[in-house]
Every structure is written in C-alpha cells, then in structure tokens.
Amino acid sequence: MSADRTDMTAARQPGEIATGYRLILPSPWEQVPLRQGTEEAVRRILREAFARISPEVPPDTVGPYKRELERRFRAAVAEARRGRALDVYLPVRPVGETNLGASVVVSEALLPRPRRQGGGASAPPTEVAVRLLARDAPAAVGETDLSSGEIDGALAVRREYVAAADPARGADPAARRVEYIASVPGDPARWFVAAFSTVGAGDPGDELAEALVTWFDALMETFRWRYT
C-alpha cells in the first residue's frame, strides 16, 4: 500500500481493491517513505532543516545542534522501519516557538487468507480489528478509550491510551497514543493502521498533547483510499 499526499482519489468501482491512501498534511509535517526512497527523503528533509538555522547562531552551537537533530530524526525513522511500517510522518518545522514531539506511523496488518471457502464462520470485523490492535501493544497507563466507526466508507476502530515509558525501546517518557485501524476495501485480509504518538510538552496529559490528539483526529478526517 502506498501513500500520496496530493493524488485525488477516484470513485471506487464495485469489487475494486484499495491500493493506497492519501492524507492532507499541514506544512510542518513531512512524509518519509519506508519501503523505497527513505534515505533520499531523510537527506532532503535534514538539508532543508539545516538551511533554516539562523546565520547568527554561533558555529560552536550549530554543529552539536545539527548532530542531535539528525540523530533524533534518524532514530525515529529507524524505529518505524523496525516495525515494518509503510510511512512515518514527522513534524520537521517548529510551530511558533514549539518543537512538536510527535509522530504518525502508517503500516498494514495482514491476516491469513482462507485456503478454501466454507471453512466456518469468521469473526466479526470489529472483533478482528480489536484483536489486531492488541497485538504487540505496549503497556497502557490508566484507561483505554475504544470506539468504532468508518473512515472513507471502511470500518475503522479507534483506540486512545497512554503508553508507559519503555527505555529498552528508546521511549523514556510516557506517550499519548491514538491508533486507527481500518479494513482495506475489497481485501478483507488487509488492514490499514495509522498510529499517532506524542509526549506533549513533557506530559502526555497536558494541553499540548490534548491539542495534538484533536489535530490527529482532524487529520484522519482527510483520509481517502486510492484505487488504481
């Protein structure tokens, strides 16, 4: 499944299988594809970020800043690739004076395809989605909010929770997580997953985290399937 930020989705024909998606991203965010063209995208984004550094910043400050920025950016991309994601979206420009500690990781979950027809009743799609969300889920702190609905006409389940800190995976602070999982139209064995994560301004329950969760929900309203 591929991503396209600008392609206009064509009307779906009966039985047609979705082959990609599109999201309308605000300018502070950039998409890094993880199956091909990753290094080219990383170098371009870093080059543009370095070019925005004020010439008034002392050289002995610029060097360490560039190295730390590149380290953090590449670490986020590497973490998404280890999870076999399709794309990762990162805020590469500050909003006002705030650097957003957030990410959106897009992946797909595949179910075993039936070997023959008539092999018995399958689980309801909503139950399947909940099971997929539960796979490899980090430990949650407090309650988990779970709801179902649709995105662009496909069944979707939304989960929101606070993930506990996990230093072994590089996640030192706890993080606010919101995940959408949607059944891919025309292919019941494939599920689209969009996972948003933020540490807010240092507290996953603070006002910045709340605002970013609201932003992500609004972003998912722009989601459209793409058909070839």
Rank of each mutant, 00 (worst) to 15 (best):
A175K: 06
P33V: 15
S54W: 02
G202Y: 06
Y89Q: 08
S147P: 07
D187R: 09
A41F: 15
E108L: 01
P125S: 02
W29V: 02
Y21V: 04
V141Y: 07
R131T: 14
D87H: 14
P59C: 03
E70W: 03
G200V: 00
V62Q: 04
A182L: 07
R169W: 10
L111Q: 09
S148N: 07
G186E: 00
A140Y: 01
L46Y: 02
E56C: 09
G120E: 09
P26L: 11
D172V: 15
V32S: 01
D206R: 00
R176T: 06
D166H: 05
R22M: 12
I45W: 02
A137M: 12
L86D: 10
A85F: 03
E97V: 12
Q13F: 14
I151E: 04
V141H: 11
V213G: 11
G202K: 02
V92L: 11
R12D: 03
T222P: 04
S122N: 07
R35M: 15
L110W: 10
Y180A: 01
S54L: 01
R169E: 14
L69P: 08
G170P: 02
V105M: 11
V88L: 07
A189C: 06
V77F: 03
W225C: 00
I181D: 02
E30I: 11
G186Q: 00
D187C: 10
P58G: 12
G142S: 09
Y161Q: 03
V157M: 04
A49N: 05
